[in-house]
Nucleic acid binder design. Structure first.
Lengths: 154, 154
DNA sequence: ATACTATATTATAATCGTTATTAAATTATA
DNA sequence: TATAATTTAATAACGATTATAATATAGTAT
């Protein structure tokens, strides 16, 4: 249920390799896997979620590698940080301007297409980043009543 | 340089007291001080900044009290959390819908008036919170060149 | 007022996500 | 192949915040 692009084509490992090299990032098995996961799954995972997923294929991976790799990807500007929740960093390889909505029941983060945004009083400012973050409940959770009063979920 | 309201009237301690009581919050010297600071200064301070400020008048205060009080204010919904930076929580007693812009050079957080925001694909969702966070440079810092390449600042 | 109860506050330890450090492993280059 | 540079893993450290336990304060009932 991606609200940005109904179904983006999957990137091959060769395409990922090309993309990393183009962005001045040396290749390693971990880097290929991590970026491939981010760009193809687009679930805005946390570092820990990425660690768990990669570990299935490459059990020797360390959490530090995931953090280092994500930091590198941020520096090279091929992923963006999503901070819907203050205490959890999530990572998104889709760079086009869009918003995020976190469902407080199931924890999923959905992409939002922004039709228009007009701001007042920005004369003289220089803007580098824009982030629009919503919190609420997704249709699935509303339907299945997957929430309590004021329900929160990691 | 508040871009929301040029100059909001200051709240008296008596008004703060009333407001807290109306929101089911028992009165204490710390609570009065902390809310009075948030509502009258509107600088979106961190917990640590609040701690430093209150300590000038009430040196016995503990950081835990600031955190406890802010958590209470959040629960009672009389302040909102501003998360422009993932690693720092800031607090805002202005509840009307507005955005925030953090200057990466001086660290100040400015309020933004949002003229229009239209989103696509929200049918079936229930929205509780909306946060718009920008990062950039403020006019003052741009003028005084108070920044390096890619300058960041807490 | 006095005793009793509930709440607020402090000091401190613990937690969580993340970053820093260091040594070993890997990769690139001369 | 030797050498240098980079990547990785294990672990310690860090910073913001939360939990814990003991004390202080405030509210209520007698």
């Amino acid at each position: 249920m991606d609200h940005l692009e109904k179904r983006a084509k999957r990137w091959s490992l060769e395409e990922v390799r090309e993309y990393l090299l183009q962005h001045d990032i040396r290749i390693s098995a971990y880097r290929l896997k991590i970026f491939e996961y981010l760009i193809n799954e687009r679930t805005h995972p946390t570092a820990e979620e990425i660690y768990e997923v990669i570990k299935r294929d490459l059990p020797a991976i360390s959490p530090a590698t995931v953090y280092n790799t994500l930091r590198l990807f941020l520096e090279k500007k091929i992923v963006q940080l999503v901070s819907v929740e203050k205490n959890e960093g999530r990572y998104d390889a889709t760079l086009s301007w869009h918003g995020h909505l976190k469902c407080l029941a199931c924890g999923k983060v959905f992409d939002l297409h922004i039709e228009t945004l007009k701001l007042d009083g920005l004369e003289g400012f220089e803007i580098f980043e824009k982030h629009l973050n919503l919190k609420g409940l997704c249709p699935e959770c509303l339907k299945t009543k997957n929430f309590k009063r004021e329900g929160k979920h990691g």
